[in-house]
Each structure stands twice: as C-alpha cells, then as structure tokens.
Nucleic acid binder design. Sequence first.
DNA 1: GTCAAGTGGGAGAGCGCTCTTACCCAAGCC
DNA 2: GGCTTGGGTAAGAGCGCTCTCCCACTTGAC
Lengths: 340, 340
Amino acid sequence: MPTLEDVARVAGVSRATVSRVVNGKRKVAPAVQVTVLEAVAATGYVPNRAARSLVTRRTGTVAVIVSGAEPEPEDDLYLPGILADPFFGRVVGSFVRSLRPHDVHPVLMVADNDETRRQVESYLRFGNADGALLVTTDADDPLIEQLMATGRPTVLFARPAHPIPVSYVDVANADGGRLAAERLLERGCRHPGVVSGPLGVPAARSRLDGYCDALARRGHAYVPQVEGNFTFESGEAAMARLLDLAPDVDGVFVGNDVMAQGAIQTLRARGRAVPDDVAVIGFDDSSVGTLSRPTLTTVRQPVEEMAAEMARMLLEQVDAGEPAVTSAIFEPRLVVRESA
Amino acid sequence: MPTLEDVARVAGVSRATVSRVVNGKRKVAPAVQVTVLEAVAATGYVPNRAARSLVTRRTGTVAVIVSGAEPEPEDDLYLPGILADPFFGRVVGSFVRSLRPHDVHPVLMVADNDETRRQVESYLRFGNADGALLVTTDADDPLIEQLMATGRPTVLFARPAHPIPVSYVDVANADGGRLAAERLLERGCRHPGVVSGPLGVPAARSRLDGYCDALARRGHAYVPQVEGNFTFESGEAAMARLLDLAPDVDGVFVGNDVMAQGAIQTLRARGRAVPDDVAVIGFDDSSVGTLSRPTLTTVRQPVEEMAAEMARMLLEQVDAGEPAVTSAIFEPRLVVRESA
DNA sequence: GTCAAGTGGGAGAGCGCTCTTACCCAAGCC
DNA sequence: GGCTTGGGTAAGAGCGCTCTCCCACTTGAC
C-alpha cells in the first residue's frame, strides 16, 4: 500500500508538498503539482483514512441513526417498525447518494432503548463520526437531547415535538391536508370525513388541521373525524367507526397510506365502491399504494429530496466545524391515482 | 478527551500496561489490572478508533453493500428497487444487531453502476472496511468478482449464479416450493398451477422446481406454468395467462408476494373468490401480504436469521485474518393466512 | 542596490495507539 | 549462593498523515 512518503520519493519532493497537492490546501507551483499528480497516479496512492483522521479529528463518516420505541418481540422480528418500512430505504439511499460525492460514508446505527441510545451518544461524543442524521418515529425521542449534548452537528427528519435548537427538515403537513381537501371537493364530494393519525403526533395533527381548515374555508364547518394509530387494522376499525358516525360520507382523507388500505378494505366489505361511492386519499405515497386496486391517490412527501437536504445541511455544519440550527420545509404533492 | 497516556498517569503505570488491560492481550497482575480499570473509569477513557486502526490495520467497520442493476430514472426516485423493499431494512437491521456486540459498525454503500462498483472495490481494497456483506439483486453481479479480488472477507446473501469461491447464506428455495405444493394439496386442490419468477434467476427456478417435483411425486405430471418478473403488474398479467391456459386451476403458487398480490387482483377481477375458488400462496412474507384482504399465505425466508449468520461468518473470517469459503442454507417456513 | 514583503517548499513534531524489545525481580534449581 | 527461568512492566519505535514553523528565493519599491 503506497504512502505519502512513497509518492514524495517518486515525485522528488517532500511529504508536505504531496499532502498539499492532494488536499489542495495551499498554493503549489503548477509544475510541481503536475509532477506530484503523476507520481500519485504512478504509485496508485490513496490517502489512509485512519492516519488522516488521527490528525484532523475528522472521520469522513456520519452516523445515520434509526431510532424509535423499542420493538415488540412479535414473531421473530425484533426490529423497530421503521426499518421494515420502504420509507427507510428511500431515505437511506438518498443519504448515500448525497454523501458520496464528498467522500463521506454513512454508518448505520439503531437506537431503540436506553442502552443503545447511550452507545450511539458515546460513539458520537468520542468523535467516531463527524455528525448525525437522525430518523426517528418518536417526535420527542430522548436521543435528540443526547445528540445535542455531544456537540456534534445533527439534523433530524421531522420537527421535534418540543422546541429544541436543532436542525431539521420536514414536509408541510398542513398543506398536505389542504391538497387532500381540495381534491375531494374538486371531485364533487359533499360529505368529506377524515381518519387521522394519533393526535399526539404533531405531523398527524397538522395534516388534520390543514384538511379541516381548507374545508372550513369552503363552508364545511363540521367534518366527521375519527382517530387511528397508523396501522392497517386501525384503518379498518376507524373507517368502520366513521361510517357509523356519518353514513353519508363520500370522501375520506386518511392520515397515512397503510391506514388508507385498511379503510378501503372496510369500505369494500360494507359494499361501498371506491372511488365512486367514497373517494379515499392517503398520505406518504408508500409503495403499498400501487400494490392494490384501486391504486391509491395520496399526498407525497418528497422523501428523497428531504433526505438529500439533510445531508447537505449536515455537511455544511461539519465543514463549518460547529452545529448550526436551520430548517427546510418541503411542499408535498398530490399524486392522483384511482381512489380519488 | 482522555488518552492512554492520561490513564497511565492516573494509574501510575505505563501506556503499554494500560493497553494490555484494555485489550486483554497479555497477562497483567490482578492488582495492577484493578488499578488500571479504576483509572479508566475515573478518566472516562475510550480508545481512539483512528489511532488503533492506524496500527492494527483493522477498522472495526464492515461494508454493507447494496448492489443491483442501475435503476430506471422513473419519477423522481433514483434508487435500486431493493432499497425501497422492506426486505432491505430487515436485513440491515439484523446486521446492525449482530455486529454491535462486537463493536463493529456497518458502513452502507450502494453500487449500481460501474463507477460506484469501482469505488466500493477501492474502499475495501484500501482497508477502509474489514470485510463486506453483499446484498445483490443480480445473481451474477460483477461486483462479486471485484470484491473477491480485494482479498477482503466477503459474504453474500443468496448463492451466486456461477460457481465462485465465496461465502454465502441462502434459503432452501426448492423446499419452499415443496411447502407450497403440499399446502395446496392438503387443502384439496385438484388443479394446481404456478406463476414463477424470471427463470434466469436461480432462486426463482429452484422455487418452481421444488414445487413441480413435489406435485409430480403426488401424481401431477403436468403443472400449467407461466412466468412473471416479480412485479405487481407482471403478476396480474401472468395470472390472466394462467387462467386462459388452465381455466380450471384451483390453486396457485406465485414466485413472490408482490406478484401474488397482482394475481389475486386478477382473480378478483375475473370473479374467482380467493381462497374458495382459487387458493394463492406467495413467497417472501413481505409486509404487503398483511396489508390486504385476504391476507396472504406465503413461504417465509428467515431473513433476520440469515443476515445474522452472514454477520457471524464475516466476523469469523475477519478474526481469522483471511477470507474463507463457507455457506449456510436456511429452511423456509409456511406462514398460513387466509389466501390458502 | 538594498530591504521589506510575499511566495513556495522542507523539516519535524506530533495525533493516540500497539507491539516488540529489553529489563527487572522473584522463584526455582543445582 | 550463583545461576537460570519466566512472568510482568517500561521504554520507545513506529503506523501515515497534517500542519506549523522556518528557510530560501523572488519580487517590487525606494
């Protein structure tokens, strides 16, 4: 494995000069630069990350932390639900793509209990990664505070539940609700209803509020509303309750796609055609929406763009050498398919 | 940040002794050991990975490589399909869990074209990771050979298409086909058919063969058979062809769950009740199977266990200091739900 | 022509760790 | 009693890199 020393010898200059050329730090005479570059090519030199990291205090890696409540020991699957969600892969894939051009690599960590949270914190505190990208299912995850305490740059996916000086990206959830409302009205729905996510989750609340606001502006003072918990089964059950509450409902906005599938199932079971009798709009544009019929009209978060922005923010902070507090909010988009 | 030096000073011994205690390499007098351990606790010392890695030539990280054909620039999603598959998260989550107790961390890399494959190879070749865990959708991925060439330990998920001296884990695909056949016969199916995956894919072929073999043993000399390509749409289309080919079919084994969803959709559209008129069995136990009605009976790969075994194999090879060639085959399990 | 300022390159000191070598000292042996 | 033996510790040499001096040289102004 060739070292700086080897390159220096071949190029007939000192180690320091080679280092300067490789890192482009200080001015080097063009002629020397060419010689060095040739020597690098000739020897096949690649900098040793460990050695560089030892002196620069930079690792060239960032931690991608997947966090959330401890999983239930259901079946033989012992992982936080988010890992089994296609959303996870989309986010992570986008991270990889965004970091690669900067020669930064993501180290994956899972934090699902106090012990693992502590490990993650210590990993960062001791400089094993230059920063953290946190994807958590829990808007007031204790890990957020712990990461702040390490002093490393950190960027979250989704706004934290409580005000904390930390960077994040998020989608304009309320606007998503508004898009759904407008679409339903446009289709001619006269009796819109809603199946919201758990109202303790800020995102779920915003989607609901945006939806109801938009409807109120068009004269719908009262919107029958039931609450689910983002699972298929809760979607089935919530839809059943909604039908009991408002039998004449002809359009439903559902807090996420998985629940929307459940809702459609209930509608089918009760003999209501989708979208002709009842139109359904989901949220997320997860792949389940295209793997069933009717295909699901949904509100899409630009997940890949959001993840790319997280990476960009983080690298900026890492370069600056200290955490900053910024945010970016992305506009959701209505993806019209068959269900509404 | 405390260093070995600091600990040594507090404990009143030399750096070397502290190092010995921390790494448990050579015998140290019990009394001294206690003193050192106390000093470690008092200072909050944690070894610096970069410094250690510089001298040991070990990084304490392994590359988790997701590979496959270059994705189509469809919509604004530019990622290999596998990343958006829940399967990916299950595998990766299991890696993290298995590596963590050994203080090894996974670095995620995506290789989807020649350029990125080259980068991954170079990353490993230059010792930035101690080994590689490869999850590829392409059984004769060129990356396999490239990884072998780096001389780093490598373990694959799924047997490579061509004989190559490399370690892998796999599921007994043929046994999965057999399980499906037995289940259908047990239900009383008289006219079993099959929608296979692409026959160029070894796993798809084995599933088909296992299924047909088991049926042949029970007198079903001829099994109507059509081919799909693992997508929902191809499942819909293949099922339609199968119905045309064999209108009396009353049980179908489908090469994966996503196609099975498509098949069920076609059956429903043609007025065949599932499972009463036609029973359907999928393969994978992906989450889509529980997000629709009827829920899908399927053949489950023990993905988490398989991934854990990959990690175990890799660590063993890393410890041994050189690649080895071993394999482990896991038995699939039938998960009986509503569709068969 | 002289001197100050500016520019490019070299020397060398570490970064924090491991590991080999050498040393010390107590116990065992003839 | 002097010697070996061997466990246990200290000393110090790097691992490959960056970065801060510092020196040599060029340039421009007076």
